[in-house]
Amino acid sequence: MSAAPSATLAAAPASARPTRSRSPVLPITIGAVLVIAAGFAVPAWLLTILLFALFRAMVVLGLIVLLRAGLVSFGQALYFAVGAYAVGFLSRAGVNDALVRVLAGALAAGALGLVLGFLLRRYRGIFFAMLSLAFSMILYGLLVKSESLGSTDGFAIHATTYAGYAPDRSSERFALLVLSSVVAWAGAIAVALYLRGTLGRLAEAVRDNEIRVEYLGASVAMAVHVKYVIAATLAGVGGALAAMVIGHVDPAMAYWTNSGEFVFVMILSGSGSVFAPFLGALVFELIHAVATHYSPGAWRIILGSALLAAIMFVPGGLWSLMPKARRS
């Protein structure tokens, strides 16, 4: 009989870590239904905040996929803008269907992410973060120089239709809320299922120890590339929704401060759950709206202070305050 080596360090207490999680479909569905139901009750200004929170959360959902592998991108505005401009081009071509627009935004951003991913997957840390930002600034520069695309002014988007149905002005925002909720529902379920699979869990393995991942027969480069494409696609979806919600696209969508706001929301949210970006984005939009309303000249100071407070007092993000998150 073999003798076991002793555990010489005081080890962590026996973990009750829920390695096998329950199906995410039901809670995400309940969340989406609640958001749609809220659309009936909330005032117009809050409806707009919900819409902004939903498209922003889609981008942050992708950032969380990257963050779990220890990667931060300061360039998601690149894919956000690509998704938005894809809708813009369709609008100019007279294609206004919601599903086509969302798919076009996802495909355009995902395809660009696939191409750039071959370069990005070779870098880590600050280089990964700043390379993404560099590409977003290149796109920003190109858009600003493109007079046919409205240069710094951008251009307007036609109203969205839904399989031939064109809602009137009074129900347009609610229709967009239903669309955004359904898209967010699908995105959150897809990401939740991905993260609980072997490929998804590989993210944490990559963050912990790339050498071991390679010596377990898996490709770290491929794992990073897949996550990068997922994050790009989700940012493209967010951009497509933003274009439809705002009704306008412009180069500022690709500007680095926009990328910074996505990272801001990611820090505010935490990465413990696919629900976190939605909570974080909603809180961000509320702070933003209240700050600009009551103190138009100092809203950036208020947002900055909020970020400082989040980092100092809630380093795990708002989601870590949830009782269930604390238990696990």
Partner: peptide
């Protein structure tokens, strides 16, 4: 993988050894 339990380390190793293609999802 230092942040995971000993059991999770080995389960991940087995999964990567056994799963290919879509089974990785």
């Amino acid at each position: 993988f230092g942040s995971r339990t000993v059991l999770e380390n080995l389960v991940m190793a087995l999964a990567l050894a056994e799963a290919t293609g879509l089974a990785l999802l």
